[in-house]
Nucleic acid binder design. Structure first.
Lengths: 129, 129
DNA sequence: TATTGACTTAGAGTAAACTTTAAGGATTAA
DNA sequence: TTAATCCTTAAAGTTTACTCTAAGTCAATA
């Protein structure tokens, strides 16, 4: 069992954000102590792991909420969930391919400017010498 | 020479956004027709290509503006520009590695849920038969 | 028992990057 | 010539995902 602060430290999400996520239906049914304090389980942490994974790869909180809601509806939503994840996976792959293209471009630019810089420094050197 | 609409179509940025970028100092010194209409050159398109590349890989407009300003200052800022681009390139590489990890996770989840779905469909089949 | 941490609702504030509106006038292409 | 496109300034609005504040109460820990 973890307090909200424990989970905040483990996930990097603030306590505010954890409560916000709960209110928005991203992480639901968090257990409570007799006194009403949130008590997160390892399962909750795992769920948060998936939530952060999806969020950090461009899925909106709204879509994640939808996915979580489907999960709670049980087995009959398995097909839809698989489709949702597959689609997201395709998006990720496309995004990564795009990133690779951009990386090539930036690499080229870095080399180009490095060469210009080298020439400039050399010129400066000669001017001084 | 391209009109603002031409450039909008070519880049996918709206005319509004192009004017906004100009105002913000991202794309500067765009030529004008005698009547005051913007006339973009191929050079402008190239510059926009780099701007979109940086933007789409997570650089903020503020940072891009800074880079553009350095460019206008001339050769003596070459070193800083190279450093800036190198740093951004490192960020991109780190981000891509992170994405790959997330992709592995999502791939695993897709397979896991697919298997669950398969088992579920089989169970349903048997129930019906 | 004192201090720290947690709880609630409700709403305001923030940042980035647009996006839209308004209002009126000028230019360009067919 | 006429319809479509462009110009300006200035400001308000939008979206997402938080982030913070307030105000008051309750719980847990040393």
């Amino acid at each position: 069992m973890y307090s909200i602060q424990d989970v905040s430290k483990k996930t990097g999400l603030s306590a505010h954000t954890l409560r916000f996520y709960e209110k928005e239906g991203l992480l639901t049914h968090v257990e409570r102590s007799p006194g009403g304090f949130r008590q997160y389980t390892d399962e909750d942490l795992e769920a948060l792991g998936l939530i952060c994974c999806l969020k950090n790869t461009g899925m909106s909180l709204q879509e994640i909420t939808r996915f979580v809601a489907l999960t709670h509806e049980g087995e009959q939503t398995l097909k839809e969930r698989v489709e949702l994840l597959r689609k997201h996976r395709e998006n990720m792959i496309a995004r990564m391919a795009e990133m690779q293209k951009y990386l090539d471009k930036v690499t080229w630019k870095v080399n180009f400017f490095s060469e210009k810089l080298r020439a400039y420094e050399e010129k400066k050197q000669k001017g001084e010498g």
